[in-house]
Amino acid sequence: METTAREFNQNASKILAAAERGERITVTKNGRPVAILSPVTDEDSTDSGGEARPSSPAYPFRTDPMGDLDFPDLGGPALDNDEIEATLRGMGGVGISEDGDE
């Protein structure tokens, strides 16, 4: 199967499904091949000893914007989700009635 880069961009899920079914897809750009998409085999996902190969990260850098967050203990009470929601409901909508009128 052959597809253009534009077609791949617009129909990626269908093209990936074709690869999953075993098809080998050549992606072209301006009429010349730029990539080959092929199905993953059992050999691709295991090392020479038959052990599952660890997956490498998709990006060589962190993608979580904040990283691990370490919040300080401010000494306040520990609230469960219902208590937090009730507190937030009490803070919002100052001057707005329940039907949305001010």
Rank of each mutant, 00 (worst) to 15 (best):
N9W: 10
I36L: 14
G76W: 11
K14Y: 04
A18H: 01
G67D: 06
T28R: 09
R21H: 03
D73L: 09
L16S: 15
S38R: 15
D42T: 14
A58F: 04
Y59T: 12
S13Y: 05
D68W: 00
D42I: 12
P60V: 03
E20W: 04
E51A: 14
I25Y: 03
A78H: 10
D64I: 05
Q10M: 13
R24H: 08
E20T: 08
G67Y: 00
R62C: 05
N30M: 07
T63A: 04
N11V: 06
S45G: 09
F61H: 11
R62G: 13
A52M: 14
S48E: 06
L69E: 15
R62M: 07
P57H: 00
G31P: 01
T26P: 00
E43Q: 15
T41S: 12
P57T: 03
A52T: 12
M66R: 09
A12L: 12
E20I: 02
N11M: 03
R32G: 03
G76D: 12
G49T: 12
A18R: 07
T41W: 03
E23G: 02
T63D: 04
L37H: 10
E7C: 11
T26S: 08
F61P: 10
K14W: 01
L37K: 11
N11R: 07
G31S: 00
N11F: 05
G75F: 04
I15H: 08
P60I: 02
L79S: 06
R53G: 00
I36P: 12
P54A: 00
R24Y: 00
I36Q: 15
L79C: 01
P77W: 02
R21C: 00
V27C: 08
A35C: 08
S56E: 15
A78E: 14
P39K: 01
Q10L: 13
G67W: 03
S48G: 14
G50S: 00
E20D: 11
K29E: 08
M66A: 14
T63R: 10
N9E: 15
V40L: 13
S45M: 14
N11E: 05
R62I: 05
R24I: 07
A52D: 10
N30V: 11
T28C: 05
A18N: 03
S45L: 12
T26G: 07
I25K: 11
A35Q: 09
P54K: 04
D47R: 06
R53D: 04
D47P: 07
L74K: 11
S45W: 07
S56K: 03
G50F: 00
D70H: 13
P57N: 01
D70P: 08
G76N: 14
V40M: 12
A18F: 04
E20K: 13
D64E: 02
I25V: 13
F8D: 06
G49D: 15
Y59S: 14
T63E: 03
Y59F: 12
R32C: 03
F61Q: 11
K14D: 13
A78P: 03
F8K: 01
N30E: 15
K29A: 06
P33T: 00
P72Q: 01
Y59A: 13
L37T: 06
M66G: 09
S56G: 07
N11H: 07
R62N: 09
S55W: 05
P39Q: 02
A17F: 09
T63M: 06
R32N: 08
T26W: 04
S55P: 01
S13G: 08
D47S: 04
G31K: 01
G49C: 08
